[in-house]
């Protein structure tokens, strides 16, 4: 079995699925000749040709809108938005159409497409290259939102996303792209959308994270008896795994890098309050990004939740 980083794992998933299913094609800015600015689509143009790996003009709305048309026609487009911070021009297409064709046509027309987008902070890139706006898309009925936390999860989830009958936003944490290497099997394996993973068993506190924050949480909380949940899918999220763990530990910390207000942690906290209130021994806490635009490099270390803030929050919970 090969040891791969996340870039290579996503690449492998794309390659295998394109070999298996000729309905799958790729569109995006710089995805062909250049292999993507992070090299995620490297080699795919040579293997599958210009008809299936399409370098597009610079227009996010057109990329997503075209993917909608392709998917309506029965194809399985996987499009890349170069950075999540540039997806907003396509918001209308996602919200008004991709998310609603099925419902609007009562199932007659559907949009089985995948939008891949590198996202998240911590790579010291220019403005708008480090956004973490996953919550916007969790607020859109009709779209699924998936966030792998490592190479193995990335491949299995991407295969599920491509095969999913509905539109999926697949967010790839840039900080992890080359940070973690894992054994990634070749060939068929999928990780179901909507299922969380217990990344570490524990008893004292439940810590929920996703994407690049999972890696931080795992490291920071080694000395604790914490149960760490890797959410993997934000929409629809796995409430069973979350609530089961909360019932066991009675304490919850949610960690995300997006701004705290209306971040996805708010939905988790509300669900826990509604459905597991009587199991709680402490208030639900969040460690999140502050309610400010993601700063440039000189300030970014103050922005991202770090080990000190994560452990301080866990210690606070344990005092209850």
């Amino acid at each position: 079995m090969a040891t791969l980083n996340m870039v290579q794992a996503v690449n492998l998933a794309l390659r295998e699925e394109m070999e298996r299913d000729d309905r799958v094609l790729i569109l995006g800015e710089d995805v062909g000749q250049d292999g993507g600015v992070f090299r995620v689509t490297e080699g795919l143009l040579d293997r599958f040709g210009k008809g299936r790996v399409v370098d597009t003009p610079l227009a996010e709305s057109a990329i997503v809108g075209t993917a909608i048309g392709l998917s309506l026609y029965g194809l399985r487009p996987v499009v890349e938005i170069q950075f999540l911070g540039f997806i907003y021009a396509a918001f209308d297409q996602i919200f008004a159409h991709a998310a609603r064709y099925r419902n609007r046509s009562r199932g007659r027309y559907t949009c089985p497409l995948v939008i891949r987008a590198p996202y998240g902070s911590g790579i010291k890139a220019p403005e708008l290259h480090e956004e973490s706006s996953e919550a916007f898309f969790c607020h859109m009925p009709g779209i699924k939102v998936v966030v792998p936390s490592g190479p193995h999860a990335a491949k299995g989830l991407l295969l599920s996303a491509i095969r999913d009958p509905d539109p999926v936003l697949f967010l790839e944490p840039t900080r992890l792209y080359r940070l973690i290497r894992e054994e990634v099997p070749e060939g068929e394996y999928t990780i179901p959308i909507g299922k969380a993973r217990v990344a570490r068993q524990g008893d004292d506190v439940t810590v929920i994270a996703w994407g690049s924050m999972l890696e931080r949480v795992m490291k920071a909380l080694e000395p604790f008896n914490a149960e760490i949940i890797d959410l993997l899918t934000l929409s629809p999220f796995d409430s069973e795994t979350v609530l089961g763990s909360v019932e066991k530990t009675g304490r919850v910390l949610i960690v995300h890098e997006a701004p705290r207000t209306c971040g996805f942690g708010a939905e988790l906290a509300a669900t826990i309050a509604e459905e597991a209130m009587l199991s709680l021994r402490a208030p639900v806490l969040r460690v999140a990004g502050p309610d400010v635009p993601v700063p440039l490099a000189r300030l970014v270390d103050y922005y991202l939740p770090d080990a000190a803030r994560i452990t301080a929050a866990v210690e606070e919970l344990l005092r209850y």
Partner: peptide, 8 residues
């Protein structure tokens, strides 16, 4: 435009 030539 990065890797995309004007003609494309």
């Amino acid at each position: 435009a990065i890797s995309v030539p004007r003609g494309r």
